[in-house]
């Protein structure tokens, strides 16, 4: 599973980097970022899904890697 933020949708609510700080970060203006490679480790799946389902702009995508 890989985490991705759609920068066109993100408005900097910051739910992702609050709920899943080990997967998401904030930039200088408060927009969400994916600092690493975005790969969601098995232990991170729950918080990753939490971040996705709490994003008010539905900007987070968790795609299954092919």
């Amino acid at each position: 599973m890989k985490a991705h933020i759609d920068p066109q949708r993100c408005q900097g609510h910051g739910r992702c980097y609050t709920l899943a700080p080990d997967l998401f970060g904030e930039d200088d203006e408060g927009y969400g970022t994916v600092p690493g490679d975005g790969v969601v480790q098995p232990a991170q799946v729950h918080t990753a899904r939490l971040a996705r389902s709490n994003c008010p702009e539905s900007a987070i995508d968790l795609s299954e890697e092919s």
């Binding site: 408005q11 900097g12 609510h13 939490l50 389902s53 709490n54 994003c55 008010p56 702009e57 539905s58």
Partner: peptide, 15 residues
């Protein structure tokens, strides 16, 4: 409540 995609702070460019 765990899933809470509320709009209390607005949505879109005027968040």
């Amino acid at each position: 409540r765990e899933v809470n995609r509320h709009a209390a702070f607005g949505l879109g460019i005027h968040r």
